[in-house]
């Protein structure tokens, strides 16, 4: 269908436009800066901590994990907020009123949130390499691993954000239904300290979700082979990483279109109007 292809092309362009607008917006620049400075300050204060028995410095160990957590967090919360908000402010309705508009809209969202990952990762990665030594131990092969883990992680988590954004009753509820669970998950996924420090059942829970596996995959890309002793089962479990992230990606690809269609079906002008009135009351 050429109209569908055409709409997807428009969606890609829409995502790119949104990305450029976001880069130029002081609000978004502030957000990137805040996240980057916060992370770097945290790593800087822990720069002399050595992880017991490995000879690894804390920043070396934590950087890949934090990048993984940022990816998972940004790619879930970003679309969740965007979708919840754009359901209320009429962006989505505008596309619903167009032929093949929803396909274009969703393509735009996927494009925009994937691209947004670049500044959020680069603003941490680049200064980190200037401030700390010995971050990348695996050379070119390591960067290749970074690339596929990021892509697979994106595919595994992006649908989650879209689903949360479609299901939450209002933008204010994204905090409760999106932010809170994702932060809890980040806390138990071995990002800030090795996962072995936690109880067994918590480890099991963490291993169901993508955050842990993205962190693990990125650690396998950056860290020296000796650091594998800090992992569960003393292994990078690359096969399992691909499998778990792949399963989330497939599940997402199957479920998300259905959830989006259901959400789009319910979208109407009176819904936007109701949200507008609710938000006016919120301001008062």
């Amino acid at each position: 269908m050429s109209a569908t292809r055409y709409a997807i092309g428009l969606g890609l362009r829409r995502g790119w436009t949104e990305f450029l607008l976001s880069l130029r917006s002081p609000q978004d620049q502030g957000f990137y800066l805040f996240t980057a400075v916060g992370t770097l300050v945290f790593l800087w204060f822990n720069r002399d901590n050595e992880l017991e028995g490995t000879g690894l410095m804390y920043p070396t160990w934590a950087l890949p994990s934090i990048l993984g957590a940022l990816l998972a967090f940004g790619v879930v919360i970003g679309p969740a907020f965007a979708l919840a908000m754009e359901r209320e402010d009429g962006t989505l309705l505008r596309h619903k009123a167009l032929p093949h508009g929803m396909q274009g809209y969703v393509t735009g969202q996927l494009t925009y949130h994937s691209l947004s990952l670049l500044p959020s990762l680069l603003t941490i990665l680049v200064p980190s390499f200037l401030l700390f030594d010995d971050l990348m131990h695996q050379g070119a092969a390591g960067w290749l691993t970074v690339a596929w883990v990021v892509v697979l992680g994106l595919l595994a988590t992006l649908p989650l954000g879209m689903v949360i954004g479609s299901l939450v009753p209002s933008t204010q509820k994204v905090g409760t239904w999106g932010m809170l669970p994702v932060m809890l998950l980040t806390a138990i996924s071995g990002i800030f300290f090795p996962i072995q420090a936690l109880w067994g059942w918590v480890q099991a829970v963490a291993q169901v979700f993508p955050t842990y596996w993205i962190g693990l995959g990125l650690r396998s890309a950056f860290l020296p082979d000796s650091a594998v002793t800090l992992e569960l089962g003393d292994s990078w479990r690359t096969g399992a990483t691909v499998l778990v992230l792949g399963a989330w990606a497939v599940a997402g690809a199957l479920v998300t279109p259905r959830v989006l269609r259901r959400m789009a079906r319910r979208q109407s002008g009176s819904q936007v109007e109701a949200a507008r009135e609710a938000s006016l009351q919120w301001v008062r």
């Binding site: 607008l21 917006s25 754009e86 402010d89 009429g90 309705l93 505008r94 009123a97 002008g269 507008r276």
Partner: peptide, 12 residues
């Protein structure tokens, strides 16, 4: 369809 939206596409 002419819609009554109120703050979409603010940066556009």
């Amino acid at each position: 369809v002419v819609l009554q939206s109120w703050r979409d596409h603010g940066r556009w």
